[in-house]
Amino acid sequence: MTLLETRNLSKSFGGLQAIDKVSLKVEQNTIHGLIGPNGSGKSTFFNLLTGVYQPDDGSHINFDGVNITNSPAHAIAGLGLARTFQLLRLYGELSVLDNVMVGYHPHTKYGPLAPLFNGAAVRRQDKAVKEEMEELLEFIGLADHAEIPAAELSGGQRRLLALGRAIAMRPKMLLLDEPGAGLSPVNVDSLMSTIMTLKERYNLTIVVVEHILKVVMTTCDTISVLDHGQKISEGTPEFVKNDPAVVEAYLGREMADEDIRAAMDA
């Protein structure tokens, strides 16, 4: 079943066509990789899907049977589409626990004025949510740091927290924007195994943007390749790896095939 579908998705900033008529389908329960050289439009693509940017006319985005083309970001989040950011965007002053509790926001059962009129219900639900979120922190290995402000975590812990905050939204689909950026190879491997466990545990569909090709090639079921805002290739890792168009986008026309294989296998 197709969970996410874009048709003719376009976005231009002034004269720059950042995303150019991209049509893409993401099947349920798969890991879909999105790769492409720097500036090819991967992050813009995520920003369009999550409502951070509004797409140009003629675009169409469908998520879980709902047309979300021009929906505001908070409404899209409410439908179960969560994401992480390349630069994390954690709530630095808030504690680790509060960070994930903000993630739970779309499922809050009481209204924004309930603390004034119905304190008992607020306390009751918050207690339950807190327990659930502590369990989640336990699972991603941040339980010992629950009270610490997010800004005081180490780099790797911050990446985990960003992931935890997105999972707290109980999403159907998770968009990961370069989850491994800035991590050592060992840490990337452990992060990817955490992501795989989370996928099984919470029954997620994942779209991942990643520069570390080894990660993408080994974990993704399908890969789409963007270049200059256009989708130039799509298929299994094996297919994409051997697609001349991809090779050209990454390394230019002149490069010999052997070198490319070597680079991708590294």
């Binding site: 989040a77 954690l90 926001h105 939204m169």
Partner: peptide, 18 residues
């Protein structure tokens, strides 16, 4: 918490469903 999330990072807050 929603107020504080907006203070810390408006874009992250909106993507968190606020």
């Amino acid at each position: 918490r929603a107020f504080q999330a907006i203070r810390e990072d408006t874009i992250a807050a909106s993507v968190n469903g606020i």
